[in-house]
Design a binder for these strands. Structure first.
Length: 108
DNA sequence: AATATGACTGTCT
DNA sequence: AAGACAGCCATAT
């Protein structure tokens, strides 16, 4: 996994993120599974790294952690988007995965 | 080549 | 409920 494969991995991850419907979210793990199936490996950390490096131009706020929360710094930036998209939120302030979780479609 | 790190996750305490 | 630990994969130093 490196060089061009890396680029493809990035593309797959970003594609999944872009495919997340409004008001819905997915998790790093879910993306890692779907992308990993095609890319033949990878893991949540990789998705995280990819998002950190190339997640800028995509709706990264639709990708949350397994507990429905985002890194504190980003959570603040994401909140307005959730409010705008009508994403189900829990009293705690994080996303209600019970309702908002969206499973990315199997690529390839 | 080895160690440390990260926008992660699951289990145990 | 909240913190500690280990597993996981790729990149950076």
């Amino acid at each position: 996994m490196t060089r061009l494969d890396h680029e493809e991995y990035v593309e797959l991850v970003l594609t999944c993120v872009e495919r997340v419907p409004r008001g819905r979210v997915t998790t790093y793990g879910a993306i890692a599974e779907v992308v990993g199936t095609v890319a033949g490996g990878g893991g949540p950390r990789l998705v995280g790294s990819v998002m950190a490096m190339h997640g800028g131009p995509v709706p990264w706020w639709r990708v949350v952690r397994a507990d429905g929360s985002l890194p504190p710094s980003h959570e603040v930036d994401a909140r307005p988007h959730y409010l705008d998209e009508g994403t189900p939120l829990r009293p705690s302030g994080n996303v209600d995965l019970k309702q908002a979780f969206w499973r990315p479609p199997a690529l390839g």
